[in-house]
Amino acid sequence: MFGYWDALYFVFIFIIGLILAWLLNEWAKKSGMGTRETGDGTKIFISGEDPDKVVPGFEHLEGHFTGKNVMWGLTYALKRFFRVLRDDHTGLLTDYVSYLLITTGFVLGVILIWG
């Protein structure tokens, strides 16, 4: 049952992934419109961040890949989930205590009923 995962499998899958990524890249280059290898159209475009675009108020950050937008797609897709989690962390000491009490109550209930 627990045949250990051989490191060789990882190498194979890594190679397959590389090939897939290369194919995807080729396909994207062919079907995309505004991308060129050299010249005016060359831009590095990572997950929604346009390096030439200057956001008002953030001029000092112009042209840096800040990592702020790298996971833009993921964050955008799950933004309601993230907002719930963020709002949950209120920073109030009372809330922390009530979470501890809720946890204790839950554990106590489960152990008394099924334990």
């Binding site: 962390h89 920073g91 922390y96 501890l100 946890t103 106590l108 152990i111 008394l112 334990g115």
Partner: peptide, 30 residues
């Protein structure tokens, strides 16, 4: 006995806090 179970619940709750498990992980992030 039931006392042992209650004590176990208190241990688990307290130690979940100390280990930073989820509903009580907020102290850790701060």
């Amino acid at each position: 006995t039931v006392t042992a179970k209650v004590a176990l619940a208190l241990f688990i709750a307290g130690l979940l806090f100390k280990s930073g498990a989820s509903p009580v992980h907020m102290w850790l992030a701060d």
